[in-house]
Design a binder for these strands. Structure first.
Lengths: 176, 176
DNA sequence: GCAAAACCGACCCTGGCAGTCGGGATTTCA
DNA sequence: TGAAATCCCGACTGCCAGGGTCGGTTTTGC
């Protein structure tokens, strides 16, 4: 299972724009340089972001892109949907829109996949660009991650997985 | 984002075997017929399941496959890992094993992706084959899903997403 | 010994997706 | 006015992972 690089790059772009919030339009070349991403490719992606109204563009020599809304009000799930389509793309799984399962009556996995989809949606919509920017200032990541994992593992053995999930500090408000 | 059909089919196979728990080995042709999956392809998958010790095989004319452990003790995350490798396969993301991020010091998305990975792991490891079999008897799925969604949405507007997740009845014990 | 099963490796083939290219439309600035 | 920098757009390429197949061997029950 993997998230497309489209979504990954897209998020990186948005985060870069979020960092420069209020500083006016950022040119794509600047972003591509700072994030080390291929300019020509990025261009496609940012187009989709604009069409999804996550970003606004201004043309001309001093032009560039900026977030269409405050970073705190843009959740990652919007970015992923804009670039990647449905969160969990499977014939038989509470997809984003409707169910297109070919075994309508007795599909064993339908329920589970819907659950997976929902959990993805939850985690992604619970994180805003502002959150990402905020955490990104912290300690080097492998460390932070490992510390988090350790703490969580302790909980997992003591209580249930669901309970542990609820205890994780999930910073911000969903955008919608 | 999508789960490979390998994983999907694999789960279907395991569920079929779980349904026939205690009835001795089930031939692959039987499974392929009942689940409407291509025999030749399934064969590959079940091989991997065996190598991961989720399934045992008996050869010969009356041979077939059966679960290596009770269905209640096999979680879906094991199946997915056996067939699909790491849960969330991304260069920069707390992958299953170790971190192979090329932007070691300031990777903005590392933290988020790890969170997604963990949430996947939670939901998948919280569901055992026995759970799937149990829920699979119930009402036709689209209904069940829609009902669940509606209930959840009501909560989401009232409380936070994380809290709603904790309230979802997640039936069973993680396998490990 | 025949039939039916599990085993195995090698192979094919198509779609999606990362990434490129060339050109056009806008704006700014000198 | 024109050059330069940007956004804008559609079309193209190339690769490779993944779904699916095939032919053959070994094991076992009747």
């Amino acid at each position: 299972m993997r998230l497309s690089t489209r979504a990954e790059y897209g998020i990186r772009i948005l985060v870069a724009l979020a960092r420069a919030e209020g500083e006016g339009p950022q040119s794509l070349t600047a972003v591509s340089r700072s994030e080390k991403l291929p300019h020509a490719y990025i261009e496609q992606l940012v187009r989709d972001l604009r069409r999804a109204s996550l970003v606004t563009a201004t043309r001309g020599k001093t032009g560039g892109y900026q977030l269409a809304r405050p970073a705190a009000e843009i959740s990652l799930v919007e970015a992923v949907r804009a670039l990647d389509g449905p969160l969990l793309e499977m014939p038989c799984a509470g997809a984003d829109n409707l169910e297109t399962c070919d075994r309508p009556q007795d599909c064993s996995v339908h329920e589970v996949f819907s659950r997976v989809h929902d959990s993805l949606e939850e985690t992604l919509s619970a994180t805003s660009l502002a959150d990402v920017v905020a955490t990104a200032g912290g300690p080097p990541y492998p460390m932070a991650v490992r510390r988090r994992r350790a703490a969580q593992h302790a909980h997992l053995t003591a209580t249930t997985a669901a309970a542990a999930s609820a205890e994780k500090p999930m910073p911000a408000a969903p955008a919608r």
